[in-house]
Amino acid sequence: MTTAVKPVKAPNTPPLTIPRPHNVLIVGVGGQGVIMISKVLATLCQEQGFEVKQSEVHGMAKRGGAVFSHVRFGEIVHSPTIPEGEADVLLALEWAEGMRWMPYLRQQSGTFIADTQRIVPPFACRNRTRGARTGYVGETIQTVMEQVENSFALDAMGIAKQLGVVKAANTVLLGALSTALDFPTEAWKSVISKFVPPQTTKVNLLAFDAGREWALGFDRESELRNIKDTRSLHQESTVEAGADYSRVEITEEWCKGCDICVKFCPERCLIMNEKLIVEMAEPELCTGCRMCEWLCPDFAITVHTPNHVPL
């Protein structure tokens, strides 16, 4: 770490008298603590004598959905929400959420700070075919660093773990955020102390310092050279997705109508017909998982998948 690195700031980061509102957009997934981080920042801005507006949306967001909070401060703040393309800082607690809000970042001068943590929603794992890939965003740390001048991707959870308190990851991020805003370190710490449970004040302040030091020591050039983690969650697969078409062969004479395959089929594509013999009702839903073949006590079902390699 070198002390020569200047605090990371957008070139237009204003001095403490500013003509226009300063905009910080904080984003993440429900339950991560987006709202609490915003409250800390909003309180800090207020204590520093600014008018501040902080806007969030509750409701469905709580159920694991995307959460965002706009914090705007300045002499006069009108709109509670940040116009697209005008966020001076975009702080993402989760990688894909950072990508979602990227169009809100002020071009050239905006600072992007993201936790490299990835929360893959069940919705991204719903392609059932062989060789399916998760629907997670494809942008890697490298692509973002190359295209966004002031970008910082840190493993806040990892840093917090080293301090022994996983829950302090958000305070690590606040430490990183503090380098992009022109507030005294002591003011940050005093506000954080008011928000955290008293017995955790010490470790949270350590976490803040760790995040701050990480950002101050961040050397973009060497980071780009040494980047090992391309961090795309798109898996490589030997099977081409969707290339499969499975066919379920049912030997009717052997089926005694026990219903096991119908009940266990994960895609619900089998039914019992009026003769109480199993029948393929929705062949396009079949993923060729072979559950019916394996569970049939009478060997009445065989699943044919063209690309199947017997194990």
Partner: peptide
């Protein structure tokens, strides 16, 4: 005047049952 920057395809993250 708008200069298109990085605008990744957003990830679908609908709310879910806990």
């Amino acid at each position: 005047k708008s200069t298109p920057g990085l605008s990744p395809e957003p990830l679908a993250r609908p709310p879910v049952l806990c």
